[in-house]
Structures are given as C-alpha cells and as structure tokens.
Design a protein around this nucleic acid. Sequence first.
DNA 1: CTTCAATGTCGAATAATTACTACAAATGGC
DNA 2: GCCATTTGTAGTAATTATTCGACATTGAAG
Lengths: 213, 213
Amino acid sequence: MKSVLVSEDHAIVRFGITAIIKDLIHPVQVVEAADFDETIRRLSEAAFNLLILDINIPGGNNLQMISAVRLRQPDISILIFSGYDEQMFGINYIQAGADGYLEKHAPEEEIRRAILTMIESGKYITPGIRTRLMEHTGHHRLSASQEGNPLLALSGREKEVMQLLARGMSVMNISRTLNLQVTTVSTYKGRIFEKLNITNVIELAEKVRLYSN
Amino acid sequence: MKSVLVSEDHAIVRFGITAIIKDLIHPVQVVEAADFDETIRRLSEAAFNLLILDINIPGGNNLQMISAVRLRQPDISILIFSGYDEQMFGINYIQAGADGYLEKHAPEEEIRRAILTMIESGKYITPGIRTRLMEHTGHHRLSASQEGNPLLALSGREKEVMQLLARGMSVMNISRTLNLQVTTVSTYKGRIFEKLNITNVIELAEKVRLYSN
DNA sequence: CTTCAATGTCGAATAATTACTACAAATGGC
DNA sequence: GCCATTTGTAGTAATTATTCGACATTGAAG
C-alpha cells in the first residue's frame, strides 16, 4: 500500500489534496500535517512513499527542510508544492534535492498528473520549470551556492550593496553612501537580482534574513 | 435545491470547497469560476443562493466586485473568502455589503460551519472579525492607530495597495492589477508611507508582517 | 443642512531607476 | 602564462516612480 504525507497549512488545500489522492490511488493511506514540526513527527512515526510539501509551511520555510526530511526518510519522494509568490524561490528546493515541483495554482489536471507521476516514477517537473532550472544552473552558479547559501554567489561589492538594499535604502542613496554612480549601483542591483533569482527588494530582504547567518 | 457558485482561482481550493459543500448540503448544485469574468458570466446565467468569493480572484480584486455581483443577483449571499494576506482589508468587503467572511487558513471545521451557516441564515462572521469590524467603524484613524495597530489608520484602497507593495509588486504592476493610473498608485504609496511613518517598502513589509495578524 | 477632513482618482512635470552596452582590471583554470 | 570569466565601474537612452496640485465624493460633526 502506498502512503502519502501532505504537509500544508491551509486546511482546505489539505482537504482537496487528500481527496484527490484518495481518488487517484488505492489502496492508499494519507496523513496530514499542518506545520513542519508535525511533518517531522509523522516522518519519525511511519514510512511514506511521497511527501507533498508546501514551501510556506509554518516552522519550515527554508531549504534545510529538505535535509531534515531526508535525514528521517532518505528514499521518500518530495514534491514541492509552491504558492505563486514563491515560484522563483521554489527552484532552489529542487536544487536542494526535492524530486518534484508543483505550483499551487496549477489546474486540477496537472495536480493529478503530478501526484500520479510522483507515485509512479518518483519525479515530476513541468517543462517550464525544467527550462528555468537549466537556465539557472547553466549560468552563474558557483559550487558555493549549489549547496545551500545563495548569497555566497555574490561578489564583495555586490554583498555590500545587497546589505544596503535589504535595509530599504534607495539606489540613489546607496550611490551616495558608497561614492559610486547611480548606474553602477543599479548594475549591481540587477546582477544581485539575477544571481539570487529574484525580482524585488522584498524577496531580497527575505533571502538576506534567511541566509545571512 | 440550493445552488452555490465558487469563485476561486486555485483549482485545489475550488476542488476542496466543492467537495465540502457536496458533503454538507444536498441536494445541491455547485458551479465553479476561476476568475471574475467567469463569475459574472455564471451569475448572468443562473440564480445562486450563495457565492463564495476569493478576494484575490483574477480580474476582480476590488470592492466593486460586490456591487457587480449584487447588480446581477441582489439577494445572493456573499461569503468573502480571504487569503491571510488580505485579512486587514478584507473587512472592507463586509462594509461594502458582503454577508460573510471566512479566512482561507481557517480549520476545516470552521469552513464547514461557515458554509452551512451562510446557507441557513445568509450570514457568517467570526467573533474576531466582528470585533475588528466594530473597532473599525466606530472610532477610527487617530484613536485606532494610537492604541496598537497602525495599519488601521489606512483607508481601504490604501490597504489594498499596501498588501501588493508588501509583496514586492511594482507600482506599475499594481496600477495594472487594480486598473488605476500609475500616479494614483504612487499617491497611495506616498500616503501609506506617511501614515505609517516609514520610508521604504522593506519597512512596509515589516509592519505588515508584524501587524497584519 | 453646511462644513471640513478624509478618500479615491488623475495629469503634468520632474526625479529616480533600469536596460543595455562597454571596458579595464582582477581572478581562476588548465 | 594564456584565455575565459567575473568584477568594478559608467554613460546613454528608455522606463518607472514621485511630487504636487486638483477635484469630485463621502461621511461625520456641528
């Protein structure tokens, strides 16, 4: 019998996922967890074939979730279930060792396909994500960032600028602080965003909070 | 026979809600809509007893949704279904004439209770929201912000913009989302910053995180 | 019923930010 | 050591964002 652990904080979503799984696979056992603590607890109690993991789960929300899971169950398949705010961010989880990636706003068909594929072959990645992944790993990706902290991919000057940006300082202000041309700072900003694969300072602040020690 | 229209863009959530409704009420007819256009179309086609409306639905996202709905079906019960980012400004929808308010992250029990209550009595508001509503309508701005939550000093539209800004959306992007001129959004942004006494979006995100329940 | 502050909205002018492009110096690999 | 990157730095042109002033609505207070 297959068994699946659904880690997701929104009750309705959990409910929906569980219903779909039960409809899709049988016999099957589905266990739900509403936060990361509970997820870990469940993983210690019984073996699962598949873990459907919401990135945004309370108590989780960082790449170490993957290793925490793998520590308990090395062979479990992990399907990252990401809200649309985290799309970009979610890719990092694949690189951190997750086996599949599904967006929360995917149509029902795709959700079904994803779950089924994960159960059958242990992997599921949409073409779109795969492409992004390639682009991502292809370019700038030093070994440092590959295993964990993406901030390590930044150069010294970039880190300086990052720090200031993450505190909300404007480009112009930074240019005065560091005695650089505005365009120079902007160039850094662009490079930082590209390297961290983000698109705005809010996400930047998040990453800094998350990874900056 | 009762009939319900579920307007929500995330397929799994729609799926879950529909399943709960069918489990809860019978006979019942459930129709789903993935965006606001479709919602309006469905409302023109048939009468419903209840509309479960995601605030964040594509094409909607503003208070006029309520009147747009009421224009078609004056007597329909409207249950606002809000993601946790929108809590703060979801209240405005009640004031705009919605009949109930349910948060997306509510536990399954509450979701069931809410739907059932809506169908039976046409209204559903949690004690917590009711309290907030009181605070809100009664004495406002100054007094409100003086004792605690500074976000309460913001007007409805401002709160909407605030949410989007706090997620890192650009002014231009917001203007497209809300169908406003860029300058209008910028005006709100300025007013928000002034009211909250901050100078950049990072601080904004912080406040939102801190006070937006 | 009048009045005033708060709200929602915008346009014109002005300021700030980004996109590209570029290029020399530092660095890393082989 | 030589070649390919990466890094630090800018300028020009194109986009975006902000300022400021305006104006119609609305709701509360008197």
